[in-house]
């Protein structure tokens, strides 16, 4: 067994194990951390595939930005883990059955018989000065510019949707409007009212009788 194969086995098994732990762990913060580990292991397997740029981007974007944000959200939310586990045991046999069947199917199809090295030979390693960052850059804005733009629109829609669902205008919230404060004139605040002088209550009663 070559060293690279050994590395692959280590990374792949850690990816699978951490994904499994992410689903089964009780603590949501741990789950988020296991997901980080899954991303990390996946990134490392990509590194073995000589996709250095994508691998680093996966770590930077997903681990560095998305998951950290996600961790904040998870910590702030008070998730009732007991309620989410309701029915876990009841649905376990069905879920496990489906999972096992799918795993069997996949291992039958994705085995070395159909996808072995004799069918799909390993690609020739690129020379040391080959830059796959440049390779991605040269097609991303030319050949794949249309899908790239659509992906941007998808992000825009996600943003619009998130704002629509969370933005709440609260009429009861008080806030200062500096411009309005500066613009205010005396007449807006003080009203001079001419009133008759006070009269006694029985006088009013008398007036009422007279009318």
């Amino acid at each position: 067994m070559s060293f690279i194969k050994l590395l692959f086995l280590v990374f792949a098994s850690s990816a699978v194990l951490s994904a499994f732990m992410m689903v089964t762990t009780r603590n949501t913060v741990y789950a988020a951390l296991y997901l980080v580990l899954t991303f990390f292991s996946t990134a490392l397997t990509w590194l073995l595939l000589e996709a250095e740029f994508l691998s680093i981007v996966l770590i930077l974007v997903y681990v560095g930005a998305v998951m950290v944000l996600f961790l904040f959200v998870v910590m702030m939310l008070d998730v009732n883990t007991a309620a989410t586990r309701e029915g876990f045991v009841r649905f376990l046999p069905l879920g496990a059955g489906v999972a096992i069947i799918m795993m069997l199917e996949m291992s039958l199809v994705l085995g070395p018989k159909l996808f072995g090295l004799d069918v799909y030979p390993a690609p020739v390693p690129k020379p040391a000065d080959y830059s796959n960052t440049e390779a991605i850059g040269s097609v991303l804005y030319t050949v794949y510019v249309y899908p790239f733009e659509i992906a941007a629109v998808i992000l825009l829609v996600a943003m619009v949707a998130a704002i629509m669902l969370t933005l709440r205008r609260r009429p009861e919230t008080k806030y200062q409007n500096a411009a309005a404060q500066a613009k205010v004139r005396r007449e807006d605040r003080v009203r001079i009212v001419k009133m008759d002088s006070e009269t006694r209550v029985d006088d009013i009663a008398k007036q009422g009788d007279g009318a």
Binding site: P147, I150, A151, I154, V157, A158, V160, A161, M164, L165
Partner: peptide, 13 residues
């Protein structure tokens, strides 16, 4: 796939 996701995301919201 991208078209489908764009449509679905708008529909979910």
């Amino acid at each position: 796939y991208l078209g489908l996701e764009l449509m679905s995301l708008a529909l979910y919201a």
